[in-house]
Amino acid sequence: MSLAFPRRALLAGAAALAAPLVMPRPLRAQKGGSLVATTYPGIWDDSFREIVAPAALKTKGVEVEFQALFAVDQIAKFAASRGAPPFDAFVLDPGPRITAIERGMFEPFDGKKLTTLPKLPPQLVDQWGAGCAAQVVGIAYNPKKVPKPGGWDDLLKEPWVSRLGLTGFGTTFGTVSLIELAKVFGGSETNVEPALAELKKVLPKIAAVGTPAAMPGLFQQGQCDVMYTNTQTVMALKDRGVDIEFATPRTGAVAFFTTLHIAKGSENVEAAYKYIDTVLSAPVQEALTRPPANLVPVNKDVPLSPNLPMKSLDEMSGFVTHDWAKINPLRGGWIERFNREMAK
């Protein structure tokens, strides 16, 4: 989309977002002391290549090759591989993780093989994989342009609505934000109709409608001054000198974890465990908390940034969470409807 026309820029679906990232040749999982792992495009990919890959080679003797793919495209690419996994390790948010579990895409996971296990919150390791980063979602705003919003419903009121950057259900943070907006107006995590109805009423006033990937740029350029997003994006923009702050809605911030998994049929399972152990090690986790990655660590030995809305991971137990087994069957329809009705 052209950033010059943000008000009604057409939202592409997740597949379209990933289209420019299609690899020029299919990568196949390597044998021996190497493996192919997925990362998310952008900051995740850059940071994992610069920090995780050298650490895995130095500390574990494992060579890692990365593929940058959005979560839904990891699922699609694996499904199309017909038993010959195109990579050895996934990185996924909660919705795609549930989909992959339901489709049998993971090797069983044994957390006891991780030397980092004692340093991780117990709930972050299960039979399918391990959490590698916490995500906290709320409202970002420019304190020099608008007052601090108090809740999700403020986004649809002045002075915020005319400075709002709106995006849809194509990301985890977008989905949970719109669910929370729906709840304020009587909806639920399976009923977003109230949010869509209220958005329709104020759509002509909204400053920008765009893809999730476009929102940080629109905010930085001043084409919107308030948006829903995660703390990682807020800190990344702040590092660039952008006037931006994170507001926790009165109903609470949203929390979820990004997780790592070993692909079903991988020929490099032991190397995959070493790779995951590297990502979860204190030195790597600490490095990933610094700019430009700004990830929220899960290793207990790594202190949290003072810019986060909590002082320890334990506080996240009181944050808002969602049941993605209920959300997943509905999300595709929500994406299609949002794109049809909001991005005109």
Rank of each mutant, 00 (worst) to 15 (best):
Y275S: 04
I335R: 12
A133H: 13
D110L: 00
F246M: 06
T229Y: 09
P212F: 00
P216N: 06
V125E: 12
M1W: 13
E180M: 07
G83N: 11
L304A: 06
R340F: 13
R163L: 11
L155D: 01
G241P: 04
P121V: 07
P249W: 03
G61L: 04
I43V: 14
A68I: 08
V284E: 13
V202R: 06
T167D: 14
E198A: 12
S281L: 06
P309E: 12
R97Y: 11
A255P: 03
A134T: 12
K200L: 06
P149G: 05
V242H: 05
A343H: 15
E286P: 11
K311F: 01
P6S: 10
F90E: 02
A37S: 05
W324Y: 15
D93K: 03
T321S: 11
D93F: 10
F246W: 07
V136Q: 13
Y40L: 15
F319A: 14
V302A: 02
K238W: 05
P108S: 06
G95V: 15
G83R: 05
G210S: 12
F66E: 10
L280N: 00
E198K: 08
D46F: 13
K112L: 05
G131C: 14
T259R: 08
L295I: 00
S305P: 03
K58N: 11
R337S: 05
R28A: 09
T289K: 00
E158I: 00
D314S: 05
S34Q: 09
P303F: 06
F185W: 13
D45A: 11
D93R: 09
T167G: 15
K205N: 12
P283I: 11
P303D: 07
T211P: 04
K326M: 00
V279G: 00
A247D: 06
P118V: 04
V72Y: 13
D126C: 04
A182Q: 03
M342S: 09
G318V: 09
S47D: 04
A197T: 07
G165Q: 05
K58Y: 11
V296K: 05
L17G: 11
L304Q: 00
D88T: 01
E189V: 07
R103K: 12
V284F: 11
N307G: 03
K238I: 00
G95T: 14
S81C: 11
D93S: 15
D73Y: 09
D277N: 10
P249A: 12
R8C: 12
G318C: 02
G210A: 07
R240C: 00
R7S: 11
L280Y: 01
Q220D: 06
F5M: 11
F257M: 15
D93P: 09
I75Q: 02
D88P: 01
T38P: 02
V242P: 07
V302W: 03
R25H: 04
A133S: 14
L203Q: 02
M310T: 03
A84D: 08
A55W: 11
Y40Q: 10
L295K: 00
G217K: 15
A55L: 10
D239N: 13
G165E: 07
R103L: 14
T116C: 04
K148H: 15
W324V: 05
D239I: 05
D243A: 14
G174Q: 09
A76S: 03
G332T: 08
A130R: 06
L120S: 04
N328Y: 14
Y141M: 14
A272R: 02
L295Y: 01
A343S: 13
V320A: 08
P85H: 04
A15I: 12
Y275T: 00
R163K: 15
L35R: 04
